[in-house]
């Protein structure tokens, strides 16, 4: 994709969503106010996270070099790389799409797609939310699900890294 195309695609997408809103507005105006309330709440929640993500991006751009990345999560790092992907995904905060630019930045610095896939998969496991899962589904379910999801995330990462050319 050309640079100019890439910079306009985001705006085309935004315009398409606005058109979608206009269509829904004519069909069911009540849904629009409901979705705008929902949207406003999301914005309120993510603005502080967005600032945090911006800060993290600055830190990554400042400290993370290709050599450092390859040391920790490159091919030579072996099992450590997967541990970093698993733990990193778990402790990362904010909506998934907030992390895409950071992960792209990491990939530009040499990080493999398998690591990115494992990282993204582990975002499903959120330590602060564990009491909530226990409340709804019980402790046995939570423990079993968490272990299986960690194993699955690494399998998925390995499939993407070794089995699929991207």
């Amino acid at each position: 994709m050309k640079k100019s195309e890439q910079s306009y695609t985001g705006y085309y997408f935004l315009i398409a969503v606005v058109i979608f809103y206009l269509i829904v507005f004519f069909i069911s105006p009540g849904k629009i106010s409901e979705s705008l309330n929902f949207t406003t709440n999301i914005f309120k929640q993510i603005i502080p996270i967005f600032i945090l993500v911006f800060g993290l991006m600055i830190v990554i751009n400042y400290f993370v070099t290709t050599q450092r990345i390859s040391k920790y999560i490159g091919e030579e790092a072996g099992i450590k790389k997967w541990i970093i992907a698993v733990v990193g995904g778990m402790v990362s905060t904010g909506p998934i799409y907030m992390w895409y630019p950071i992960l792209k930045e990491l990939r530009n610095k040499g990080v493999k797609n398998g690591f990115i896939a494992t990282f993204l998969y582990n975002r499903a496991i959120k330590p602060p939310l564990i009491p909530m899962i226990i409340y709804y589904f019980g402790i046995q379910f939570t423990v079993v699900l968490t272990i299986i999801m960690i194993i699955s995330s690494i399998i998925q990462g390995l499939i993407i890294e070794r089995g699929v050319k991207i």
Binding site: G10, Y11, F13, L14, A16, V17, V18, F20, Y21, V24, K31, S35, L36, N37, F38, T39, I42, F43, I46, Y97, M98
Partner: peptide
Amino acid sequence: LPILVGIILLIGL
């Protein structure tokens, strides 16, 4: 930014 705003609006809808 435009993608982010679009995604949040879409999630709401």
